[in-house]
């Protein structure tokens, strides 16, 4: 088992944990953190599988750099929105869905 496969395997587990983490908790900060764990899992799979033969592959590494920047941007927007929601409602949670019905 190469180190690449260890990375890829851990990435898959992290991704699944991240998905559960986005769905389960109600606290927004935990959801946003879980989304980041999910993304990191996918990045690990991308890089890990790419270099499972042992030699480094620059293409997935560059893709992951792009992906990290995208994730940073999305996280920043999510945090800003979560803060605004907390300022307006005093709670770090999404209000119940049926509110507007």
């Amino acid at each position: 088992m190469t180190t690449g496969m260890i990375f890829a395997g851990s990435g898959a587990i992290l991704f699944a944990m991240g998905v559960a983490g986005v769905l389960l908790p109600t606290h927004l900060l935990r959801k946003i953190l879980a989304f980041n764990i999910m993304g990191s899992g996918a990045f690990l799979v991308l890089v890990g599988l790419g270099q499972r033969s042992g030699e480094p592959d620059p293409v997935p590494q560059a893709m992951v750099l792009t992906g990290i920047v995208v994730a940073v941007a999305a996280t920043a927007l999510a945090l800003a929105l979560a803060r605004r929601l907390q300022r307006l409602t005093g709670r770090m949670e999404l209000p119940p869905e049926a509110e507007r019905d």
Partner: peptide
Amino acid sequence: AVMLSAGILAMALVVSMF
């Protein structure tokens, strides 16, 4: 149910990768 599905997803992903 969510945890169980996540666990199954992780297992399937890891096994298929190898």
